[in-house]
């Protein structure tokens, strides 16, 4: 398994992909529509984005399945299409995956919260993720559980995967920076998250979204102090704003790339980008990594 070899090679930094949602939106996704629905309706759009990432230098790219666990599909009244949406996602990425490059099964948040905010439980989450994992397992090389803000939901996702699959898991939470350090909006500290992710058997721990590259440098320093596990970092390209009807990210690719190099130097094993980053960002990181 290539991924495990990469993990064991101390000299290797793995280049992951960049933003998917923000790229789809650029290509004219209508507001309110679930990006994963394009797997069925406009597969060529998804294919072209994933191909652009592989060509830019991403050694592994994610399936377009961020929003396709059972509970999130149910929020969009699409739960009956869970098999079709996830299967099409696999067909699309499998058709353009270059040799020796990996397909990562993307698992995003359920959008349902536990009490006192909502009525979700670990069991409910686990069963929702399991339905998705069962469909994706045959076609992916490893998993990326991402943008999770409740460590209990992450626990459920890891357990769901382990029930079905023996493939490696990158477990990536989303943190906000507070005066007292990095926490999820549910109040889980970085230290608590890392302990649980390690105990549940994640292969790689990480952070994505919410924070820009600059803040991720500080977060990476804390990761380094708290764990010896391999770390994956995928920052946003700063904060988006709207000009007319176009979304603008003010941070330059150069600034982002420089920060990523600092993050690599601090010991990140896997780097890429989240919202607002593009194939061009990945290309620039690749140039700087050489």
């Amino acid at each position: 398994m290539i991924f495990n070899e990469w993990l064991e090679d101390d000299t290797k930094t793995i280049l992951f992909d960049g933003g998917m949602g923000s790229e789809i939106i650029k290509r004219g996704l209508k507001p309110g529509k679930l990006p994963d629905l394009l797997n069925i309706e406009e597969p060529q759009v998804i294919r072209s984005i994933q191909q652009a990432y592989y060509e830019a230098g991403s050694e592994m790219v994610q399936s377009n399945t961020f929003g396709s666990c059972y509970l999130n599909l149910k929020n969009h009244n699409l739960e009956e299409q869970i098999v079709e949406i996830n299967q099409k996602a696999l067909e699309i990425i499998n058709s353009i995956r270059p040799i020796n490059h990996l397909i990562v099964g993307d698992i995003g948040p359920s959008s349902v919260f536990k009490p006192p905010i909502g009525d979700a439980s670990i069991d409910m989450w686990q069963s929702s993720f399991k339905k998705q994992v069962e469909i994706l397992n045959s076609g992916v090389d490893l998993w990326h559980i991402e943008t999770i803000s409740d460590i209990d939901e992450m626990t459920a996702a890891i357990r769901a995967i382990k029930e079905v699959s023996s493939k490696p898991i990158i477990s990536s939470m989303t943190y906000k920076k507070t005066k007292r350090g990095f926490f999820t909006i549910m109040g889980d500290s970085l230290e608590k998250c890392l302990d649980i992710q390690m105990n549940e058997g994640a292969d790689v721990v990480g952070a994505n979204c919410t924070l820009g590259s600059n803040e991720m440098i500080d977060l990476m320093k804390e990761f380094k102090d708290l764990t010896d596990m391999p770390v994956s970092i995928k920052p946003n390209a700063g904060k988006p704003r709207l000009e007319g009807t176009t979304t603008i990210y003010d941070q330059t690719v150069q600034e982002f790339t420089q920060d990523i190099i600092k993050i690599i130097n601090l010991g990140a094993k896997i780097v890429g980008g989240c919202c607002g980053t593009t194939p061009h960002t990945i290309q620039e990181i690749k140039k700087k990594m050489k």
Binding site: F113, P116, I117, K176, T178, K179, R180, I185, M186, G187
Partner: peptide, 15 residues
């Protein structure tokens, strides 16, 4: 706002 309490506390307080 200061990052001293989080979403669950905010919701509980409101409840």
């Amino acid at each position: 706002d200061e990052g001293e309490v989080f979403l669950p506390e905010l919701m509980l307080g409101g409840n």
